[in-house]
Amino acid sequence: MTCEEAQRSMHYHFDGDDHLHVRKARAHAASCTDCGRHVMDLEMVEQGLRSLQKFAAPPGLRDRILEAVREVPQKRPLRGTGGLMTREQ
């Protein structure tokens, strides 16, 4: 397996796949400095993304939304979309 193949296959490892080509890529990376570093870099990317915090909506946003909603009418259901309304009626 070439480094290029290993680095491509390694992404499936990050997706949670465990196919033969993923296992081969893992074995390759264990003994190849470049590919080992590549895996570590990708782990850092994942760690960075997961460390991003989840926010609470700022105060006032909900009121703003509800005020805006009061100004607009709801569109009628499209025929054949199977929305709850059409089904109940």
Binding site: L61, I65, A68, V72, P73, P77, L78, G82, G83, L84
Partner: peptide, 26 residues
């Protein structure tokens, strides 16, 4: 950007509200 994100959330809920009767429950 917080201000733009708030505008986007408002726009999203506005679309959700107006389109709600067209939501396909499948």
């Amino acid at each position: 950007n917080s201000a733009e994100a708030q505008d986007a959330v408002q726009e999203t809920f506005l679309r959700v509200y107006t389109q709600l009767r067209r939501y396909d429950e499948r």
